[in-house]
């Protein structure tokens, strides 16, 4: 089971309590979450997210923690965790690279980027590097089709317009403990006449 269970002996098969724990602050946050819905069950997804952000995955023992915290059947939490692809049902590499190979990315070289990463990391899609640094995955459309090819890093930031050079840079960055910045991609100007404004919102 998990590495933690052997540390503190709270193995799930023995006494039925999870080896993982939420902090006091997290338990308070969960109470606030519950007030936003008429039924407790509705916080299953948010609390699974909270658990994954804390423990890095939602393996069966983390699922048990979520079930016990919410007083819901373990079978329910398990069923939900299994249904949604973003929940890691087992520990993954430190960085999870989700490379989109869906429609638009497929047309714009997504498979080449995936192949480049497979070569560079020496693993196939779905695998983790032996040093536990990188898990490589093939993803379905991530909603960045105009900025293909692209990938998402560990369920968080998107990196767009990938080239082998850019992939190299991102891997170096991740290896040195940095996360790539959020890329704001403004809407291109439509107007061709000078005296009129056109679409192109901006963040600042």
């Amino acid at each position: 089971m998990s590495q933690k269970s052997s540390d503190n002996g709270a193995s799930l098969s023995q006494n039925g309590t999870s080896a993982y724990k939420f902090t006091k602050e997290q338990l308070a946050e969960i109470e606030v979450l519950k007030t936003k819905y008429p039924e407790v069950q509705a916080v299953t997804l948010p609390v699974l997210w909270m658990a994954q952000d804390t423990f890095g995955h939602v393996d069966p023992e983390v699922q048990r923690l979520v079930a016990q915290t919410l007083d819901l059947p373990e079978s329910h939490v398990h069923g939900v965790a299994e249904f949604y692809t973003q929940y890691f049902k087992e520990p993954k590499g430190k960085h999870v690279l989700d490379v989109c190979t869906c429609l638009s990315c497929h047309l714009c070289g997504g498979m080449d980027i995936l192949g480049y990463l497979e070569n560079k990391l020496g693993i196939k899609a779905g695998e983790t590097t032996p040093d536990g640094q990188f898990t490589l995955q093939e993803a379905e459309c991530l909603g960045a089709c105009g900025y293909a090819p692209m990938m998402q890093i560990t369920n968080d930031v998107y990196v767009n317009h990938l080239t082998p050079e850019k992939v190299d840079r991102v891997l170096d960055q991740l290896a040195s403990g940095q996360t790539p910045d959020f890329e704001s991609i403004p809407m291109p100007l439509v107007s061709t006449t000078s005296n009129n404004k056109a679409a192109g919102g901006s963040d600042e």
Partner: peptide, 17 residues
């Protein structure tokens, strides 16, 4: 007239967020 269309959903205004 698409070239002179003024966007209304996402107008070109800085800091609208």
């Amino acid at each position: 007239d698409w070239r002179t269309y003024e966007p209304v959903l996402i107008p070109n205004i800085a800091g609208l967020n």
